[in-house]
Computed example of a mutant assay.
Amino acid sequence: MTRNVLSLFTAGLLFIGCAETQTGLSKTQSGALIGGLVGVAAGAATGNHSAKRILIGGAIGAAAGGGIGYYMDKQQEELNKELKGSGVQVQRQGDTINLNMPGGITFDTGKAAIKSNFNPVLDDIANVMIKYPETRIEIQGHTDNVGSDADNLKLSEQRAQSVTTALINRGVESTRLSPVGYGESKPIATNDTPSGREANRRVEIKIIPNPAK
């Protein structure tokens, strides 16, 4: 029976890989499925091959495998709700949540002081971050290519630090936060048009699962 379980385990992993690619299976779903398969294999490996023991192992493994993805899913749901209509884009890459804050809604041109009308949005972001403490947060400043490299780098660093300070003042632990400026080095659009340059002038907040937690 152990040989049969291992064969099913291998086939299951292959199936999950195909399903994630072809049907958009979420990281939470694939994590839970993989965890379940691991639990099944562990249950069978105990030497007690009863269906009950194997099913229990599968259930435990599924809960553990889906944990990180589920935790990030819930944060994303709350951020989508809180930031709807704010101009902040909530995006997901694997288990990382990315908040794209266009410079036009957060800062005046060439300035690093946060606009006063953006403070309620930062309140909402901080509240969700505090509610979900098992993450680390990278605050990235970006600019367009207008001006010198040195000036753009300095401005991006100052803007990242402004957002970091604002979050700390709202109760987010400073040890979770890492501000960094990239200047004009990471554009997401062309700098040849006004709309492209506007898109590149931004602050991004990356919310990343903390493996140490």
Rank of each mutant, 00 (worst) to 15 (best):
M1N: 06
N4K: 15
L6V: 12
L8A: 15
T10L: 15
A11K: 13
L13P: 11
L14A: 12
L14K: 08
L14C: 10
I16M: 02
I16W: 00
G17Q: 10
C18S: 15
T21E: 15
Q22P: 15
T23A: 11
G24K: 06
L25V: 10
A32Y: 10
L33N: 05
I34R: 12
I34H: 09
G36L: 04
G36N: 03
G36T: 02
G39L: 03
A42F: 08
G47Q: 08
N48D: 06
H49D: 11
H49R: 11
K52W: 01
I54M: 12
G58Q: 04
A59C: 03
G61V: 04
A64I: 11
A64E: 05
A64H: 05
G67Q: 12
I68K: 05
I68L: 09
I68W: 02
I68F: 04
Y70V: 14
Q76A: 15
E77R: 14
K81H: 15
E82I: 13
V88T: 01
Q89T: 12
V90N: 00
Q91A: 15
G94E: 14
G94I: 15
D95Y: 14
I97Y: 12
I97E: 13
I97R: 13
L99A: 09
M101I: 11
M101Q: 06
G104E: 09
I105T: 09
F107L: 11
G110E: 04
A113V: 13
K115T: 10
S116H: 12
S116Y: 12
N117H: 11
F118V: 07
N119I: 13
N119A: 14
L122K: 04
D123E: 00
N127W: 02
I130V: 05
I130G: 02
K131I: 06
P133G: 01
P133N: 00
T135H: 04
R136Q: 09
R136S: 09
R136P: 05
I137N: 05
E138Y: 08
I139A: 00
I139C: 01
Q140A: 08
G141A: 04
N145Y: 00
V146W: 04
V146K: 10
G147L: 03
N152V: 02
L153C: 08
K154N: 02
S156F: 05
S156T: 06
R159I: 02
A160V: 12
Q161N: 10
S162F: 03
S162G: 06
T164W: 07
T165L: 12
A166E: 10
N169P: 10
N169S: 14
R170H: 03
R170Q: 03
G171P: 00
V172Y: 06
V172F: 08
V172C: 11
E173K: 13
T175N: 05
R176P: 00
L177A: 03
L177Y: 01
S178Y: 03
V180I: 07
G181V: 08
G183F: 01
E184A: 14
S185W: 01
S185C: 02
S185G: 02
T190K: 06
D192F: 06
T193K: 05
G196P: 04
G196Y: 03
A199H: 02
R201S: 07
R201V: 05
V203T: 11
E204K: 06
I205D: 08
I205E: 09
I207C: 07
P209L: 03
A212I: 09
A212Q: 09
K213E: 07
